[in-house]
């Protein structure tokens, strides 16, 4: 398991000078994931915040090979690169043993929603690649619109908290479990704020051949509404309240990688962010209760699988 003392010796996949918001969690995810690779990496990114802020021509923050194609196709694009790598290896243009790790990044929009078909297809085909969803639970790049990753009750610009409808009505889609159902070799959930958890998972993913998926909760100070300094802390709060459990599923075997010492009430997480502020007003007790109930249900189900 790499410690930070090892990681600091690595070259940084991202330079400064990119245009992410102050306190953005996405570059944190990228750096921690890519620096966990022993081998060279080639990166694909879906259209989204990460791609936009890191590649404003003529300034690229990427010090590793990087390709952006479109919004919904980072997995398909990455599978094309991986296929090219296999072809060039077969024809002797790339030497045997010269391993490259292929990594596709996508936000929750590019992963849960518009890019889901592309992701599912690439995983089914078994490409040797790691897909990382930097999940900030809404379409932040275009101004905080709801996605299927947006949690119930959150106010977004396309599911705003109004007089009649209190933000998003539906619970979030459990994409991590959907990826587990693909019976792929490695699926994990992590969050910004747990560097050791994320780097360990990335390192493990890179050691496995075939498709891998890591869903990283990435607090967004703009879309979630909190002080930029709190990005990592809010990620930890998500895990401590069990709204975002940290776990991994290796060849179908569930393992909880973080168990909160004391499971905090969900409301602790909700009250830390502006997107849920309206829920704390009187009259929304039922919604709060339903969110706590759903969180408990998912958590219990996960515990049962992990123990079983």
């Amino acid at each position: 398991m790499p410690g930070l003392r090892d990681l600091v010796k690595k070259s940084d996949p991202l330079t400064g000078g990119h245009r992410a918001c102050a306190g953005c969690g996405a570059p944190i995810v990228v750096r921690q994931v890519l620096m966990s690779s022993k081998d060279p990496v080639v990166v694909v990114s879906a259209t989204g915040c990460l791609e936009v802020v890191t590649t404003i021509f003529p300034y690229s923050a990427w010090t590793v090979p990087f390709l952006h194609n479109a919004f919904e196709n980072s997995a398909a694009t990455c599978s094309g690169i991986e296929a090219a790598y296999q072809a060039l290896k077969r024809t002797g243009k790339i030497k045997e043993g010269q391993h490259i790790n292929f990594v596709a990044f996508g936000g929750d929009g590019g992963t849960y929603d518009i890019g889901f078909q592309s992701l599912s297809g690439a995983v089914e085909r078994g490409h040797d690649m790691l897909y990382v969803c930097y999940n900030n639970e809404a379409y932040m790049n275009t101004g905080i619109q709801r996605s299927s990753a947006t949690p119930k009750g959150a106010s977004t610009t396309t599911a705003p908290a109004g007089k009649v409808i209190p933000g998003k009505v539906q619970f979030s889609k459990n994409l991590t479990e959907i990826m587990v159902a693909h019976e792929m070799p490695y699926v994990a959930q992590s969050a910004v704020g747990f560097w050791r958890d994320l780097t360990s998972k990335a390192e493990k993913a890179f050691s496995i051949r075939g498709p891998k998926f890591i869903n990283v909760l990435q607090p967004c100070r703009l879309g979630w509404g909190y002080k930029p300094a709190d990005t990592a802390a809010i990620g930890r709060l998500a895990a401590d309240t069990c709204v975002w459990p940290l776990y991994e599923v290796e060849n179908g075997k569930y393992k909880l990688t973080y168990k909160p010492k004391e499971k905090k009430p969900v409301v602790e997480f909700l009250k830390s962010q502006d997107r849920f502020r309206h829920l704390l007003k009187p009259g929304n007790e039922a919604i709060l209760e339903s969110i706590q109930k759903e969180t408990d249900k998912r958590w219990e189900a996960l515990l049962a699988k992990s123990e079983g």
Binding site: V42, V44, L67, N69, A70, E72, N73, A76, T77, C78, S79, G80, I81, E82, A83, A84, Y85, Q86, A87, L88, R90, T91, Q117, S118, S120, G121, A122, E124, R125
Partner: peptide, 27 residues
């Protein structure tokens, strides 16, 4: 010798073609 990628849609077909061609291959 071709690496054949039987994708799940034409959108992904062209996306994978772009990826492979950007990786320096005849596609």
């Amino acid at each position: 010798d071709t690496q054949f990628v039987a994708v799940e849609s034409e959108h992904s077909a062209m996306s994978a073609c772009v990826g492979a061609a950007a990786a320096g291959c005849r596609v």
